[in-house]
Structures are given as structure tokens and as C-alpha cells.
Design a protein around this nucleic acid. Structure first.
Lengths: 210, 210
DNA sequence: ATTTCATCCACATAGTTATGTGATTTGAGG
DNA sequence: CCTCAAATCACATAACTATGTGGATGAAAT
């Protein structure tokens, strides 16, 4: 029996959801509330498996509720409900530990399926929302390395620099003279268009060379 | 009519998929191939709306095929097919511009729905895969640490260090003596548990202090 | 055959960084 | 009031980094 706690301000939608979930075998609605004002007490009292959180509610809304819940409970699966697939909210919700993000127009049958998914460790998402997540993900994990054409050796040296090795230590590590290390590093600076160790290290991180 | 191009090495599965898709109104399989060896010519010839790419194929596999396709075509929707939800492959696929990622055990009805989703700009994903994406996403977008308790001034100094400023330049920038810069930096090193500029810069990036 | 490039090494010098040992002032909190 | 931490500054020394100039080798590309 999957125990669900429901937060939704619209009485019709709340009733509809409750009937849908309670009327399905294997599911049960523990309680439902119109906002997250007392979410801590409520979650601690009911110990739900899944929490459905509407994003837009008067009073403490779903995003604030999510943050509050995650401060003391990280096991309950939390699914966000929303009318719009608003980019900013999706980002905030995911960052704060939501397990899924569903549009309210999701058909009832699917909703049950999604709730089931969540309890099994999945992250149910409306595909338009998944598309946004992928887009954000791609932006931060772009493939942009190898633009600088560092040679194999130069890459090794750069990695050791990033790890905080001094020239002398790099020489020992790679079995080359310190002067050789120097000339590699000079070449690296040229290729990265920088002129100090810190800048090279910073650039290595920023451009995902490491 | 949604035009689909199919890459799948297993003849049975390939036939099954073709019959399923071709047998559904609004869908049509343009052609199917057993690997991505000639993916460029094929995609340019057929101009499909959706490409289904099996990840594991002898010869040029799905991931390599994906990379090849994305070098000249960014409009076709590409859905990856796989038996396992292997973390590394998911990451690679998304990073290289895949639009969705489906397990082969996806029921036929759903598969069609997913293909439809993709053409409408969605990113259909099996929920176990979505969960992985969310996890990766959370790891890189965690709320910043503030565990090191750097003071306001120390933070300023650290930022300038990261930007490649020398002690002297930092002093000029902040209107303080170089010796003061030194003592701030020493304090920063203590707090970050490092003992060189590069290590501090690296830690600043790694722990999202910047 | 010649050029290019990565890799290797040497020596010298100016400038920077790391470390230590002080010290003063100021504001917040017990 | 007293203490503590942050912020400021000074002087000294050892170690390290940046920069320049110069050279040697070998493999790959033209």
C-alpha cells in the first residue's frame, strides 16, 4: 500500500485526486492540505511514501514546502505538480531534491503509474519537463574540451599543477628535469592564453580541461 | 506522418520494431540498419523526423553514431535504446545531444507515444533513467557549501586569487598593504586546509566557492 | 630532404610566494 | 570590561615562479 500525502489548494482538484488515488487498489491518501504552512508536523505525523506538492498555493507554496521537508526527511518521494512547465521552477525543484515533476494535465491513469514509479526509485517527469532538464544539463556539461590542443605531456603537467604540485614535484613525478617542467608550463600558458599558474588552474576548471 | 529511421543490430527486434511502427497510423519506418557505419549518408538521404539508435551494436555503435549525426544534423530527434540503464552511457548520450533515452523493455504502446513526444519537443525517458539524470544534475548544481567560514574580506581575496591577481595587484585592488594580503591568504589556506595558491584555486572551484 | 613539433635540458635573474614572528585597531558578544 | 576574531601593517628569509636565451633529439608531416 503506497501512502500518499497531498498538498493542493484547489478543492475540486484536491477532491478529484483523492478519489482517484484512494479508489485505486494499492494506493491510499493519508490526508490532504491546502498549503505547506504546517508541512513539518504533517509529514512527521503521517510518514507518507509519496508527497504530491502543488507548486502554486497561497501561503507556503510547494517550492518552500519542498525545502522545508528536505531539511528533515530525505526518504519520502516528492512529486511536484504544476500547470506550467516553467523553467525556473523546474530548476529550483530539482536542485532541492524533488523526485519528479508532473503537469496537472497528466491523465489519471498515468498519474498513478508515476506515483508507483517514484516509490520504485524512478524520477517520473512529463516529457516536456524532461526536455528542459536535458537542456539545462547539456548547457553545464557541454563538450568543449580539446580546443587548446595541449599535448599529452602538457596535459599531464597541467593536471599535476591543478593538484598543487610544485615544479620540482612535477619533475620528480614525471622523471624529467625541473627546467623541462618549466618549458612545458610556458607552452601551456601560451596555449591557454594565460600568464600565471592560478589563471591556468582556473581555466582548466572553467573549460573542463580537468 | 512521423518518419523514423532505425538502427538496431538484432534482426528480430529490428523486424518487430519496424512492424510496430509501420503498422501504426501516423508512423512510418523509412529504413533500418544494423549499425551506424554509414550513418551520415543514410540520414542525409532519408531526412527522418526521429532516429532510434540502439546503444550496443557491432561496428559503429549508437553513441558514436549520435556524435556523427550531431555534427551535421541537429534537427532530427534522436532516441537512444538500451537494455541497461548504464550511468556512463546515459551521461555521454545526453551530453552529445540525445533527445531521449529508452529501455528496450518499454511496452510497444509507450514506445509510439515516446516517439510522438520527441517530435513535439519533449524528452521521453524511462523513469529510472530520468532518476539518474536528476541525480547527476543535483550533484553539479548543489547548493553552495559555506562550510569554510571565510570572512567577507577573505572571500574577496580568494576571488581575486582565482582571477590570477598577484598579491601586489590584490593589494592595489583592495587598497591594503601587500603584507595584509599575505596574512589574509595565510588565513584562507588554513581554513581551506591547503598550502599553495593552486590548491586554493582548485578547491574554490571544486567546492563551488566561486 | 626539410620543416615542424613535442620533448628534453641548462643557466641566469627578477619577481613572487610561503612562512615566521610580531603588533595595532576595531567591533561583537559574553 | 574583557576576550576574541577580523583586519590591518611590518620585516626578514627561504623557496618557488616567470621569463629569457639557447640548444639537442627524434618522429611525423610535407
Amino acid at each position: 500500500m503506497i501512502k500518499v500525502l497531498l498538498y493542493e489548494d484547489n478543492p475540486q482538484f484536491r477532491e478529484g485526486l483523492t478519489m482517484l488515488i484512494d479508489g485505486s487498489t494499492g494506493f491510499s491518501v493519508l490526508a490532504s492540505y491546502k498549503n505547506c504552512d504546517h508541512v513539518k508536523e504533517e509529514v512527521e505525523k503521517w510518514k507518507p511514501d509519496v508527497i504530491l506538492l502543488d507548486i502554486n498555493m497561497p501561503g507556503t507554496d510547494g517550492l518552500e514546502g519542498l525545502k522545508k521537508i528536505r531539511q528533515f526527511n530525505t526518504v519520502a518521494k516528492i512529486l511536484m505538480l504544476t500547470v506550467f512547465d516553467d523553467n525556473k521552477n523546474v530548476f529550483e525543484a530539482i536542485r532541492n531534491g524533488a523526485d519528479g515533476y508532473l503537469l496537472k494535465k497528466t491523465p489519471p491513469a498515468k498519474l498513478l503509474e508515476y506515483i508507483q514509479d517514484a516509490t520504485e526509485g524512478g524520477a517520473p517527469m512529463t516529457s516536456s519537463i524532461a526536455a528542459q532538464v536535458l537542456k539545462m544539463f547539456q548547457e553545464t556539461h557541454q563538450v568543449k574540451y580539446q580546443e587548446y590542443n595541449l599535448s599529452e605531456r602538457e596535459n599531464q603537467v597541467l593536471h599535476l599543477l591543478v593538484e598543487g604540485y610544485s615544479y620540482k614535484m612535477i619533475g620528480n613525478e614525471l622523471f624529467i628535469a625541473i627546467d623541462t617542467v618549466r618549458s612545458h608550463i610556458k607552452k601551456i600558458y601560451e596555449k591557454l592564453h594565460v600568464n600565471s599558474k592560478s589563471e591556468a588552474v582556473a581555466k582548466a576548471f572553467r573549460d573542463k580541461l580537468i
